[in-house]
């Protein structure tokens, strides 16, 4: 009886919750409208700190551009940023032509900022002996957003959610590989491999709507297709978790 009432969620029950959050986001402030120079200078920065520039979320600040600089080729600018691993989430602008350009491609526009921002210098990745650990710098705790993939993941492709969870809304083909430091969720047919908690997080889990995987692994403990196929839950919605060194597959 009690389970019955659980299913009858009243229509008024909230299906979502809005949460305020302070995300650390990189801001690229453009001083001049010179995309060629930007391309070159970004390339040099990337060479110094390649890890910093890997799908890094970015706000493009155009609000410090003098009015005298001509109209920005916004898609061109975004392409250059993307080429160097910076993914534009929004622009910050006050010039009307920049705002119009952003609206034209459905990109959010943030108001010009008065807030103080500290210059961010990606640490050059030098191969020197590690200096003694410096006193922990006062940076905001870094929240790695969940990586969400909406396109099918094809054979031969590998997707890694570094430091967080991976969500795939489409299907995962045989020969495709999903890796995450956290959990993995697959909402389409799961026919490839999924490796969760690859840096050793034994609490990580794998959730699939239709488990027909080639391999599942949590923190290095794995089961391959031959074992998985024998499981009565093959083909159904399951979660995979680790207790001790045993992988448990249970119905979702």
């Amino acid at each position: 009886m009690q389970t019955m009432s659980l299913n009858q969620t009243p229509d008024t029950a909230s299906v979502f919750q809005l949460k305020g959050s302070m995300l650390a986001i990189t801001v690229l402030e453009l001083a001049r409208n010179d995309l060629e120079a930007l391309d070159r200078q970004l390339a040099a920065k990337v060479a110094q700190a390649p890890n910093f520039f890997s799908n890094t979320p970015l706000v493009l600040a155009l609000d410090k551009l003098p009015a005298s600089e001509g109209a920005i080729d916004l898609p061109g600018l975004m392409r250059i940023c993307r080429h160097h691993g910076l993914r534009t989430l929004a622009i910050r602008a006050n010039r009307i032509e920049d705002i119009a350009a952003a609206i034209a491609i459905d990109l959010p526009v943030l108001p010009p900022s008065g807030a103080r921002e500290r210059p961010l210098e990606p640490e050059p990745e030098v191969k020197q002996p590690e200096p003694a650990p410096a006193p922990a710098p006062a940076v905001e705790p870094q929240v790695r957003p969940t990586r969400i993939i909406t396109a099918p993941v094809r054979g031969g492709q590998q997707i890694y959610a570094q430091g967080g969870d991976l969500v795939v809304t489409g299907s995962v083909s045989p020969g495709a590989e999903l890796l995450a430091d956290g959990n993995i969720h697959v909402y389409g047919a799961m026919r490839g491999r999924a490796l969760a908690g690859i840096k050793g997080n034994t609490k990580a889990r794998i959730f699939c709507q239709q488990m027909t995987a080639e391999m599942v692994s949590i923190a290095g403990q794995y089961k391959v297709c031959e074992d998985l196929r024998r499981d009565p839950l093959w083909g159904s919605g399951v979660q995979v978790s680790l207790s001790g060194d045993v992988l448990n597959i249970t119905r979702l």
Binding site: P152, R154, S173, A176
Partner: peptide
């Protein structure tokens, strides 16, 4: 079908 699937991955990336 497997090879086509791989090719689709290449087309999209």
């Amino acid at each position: 079908v497997r090879d086509s699937d791989r090719m689709l991955g290449i087309l999209s990336s």
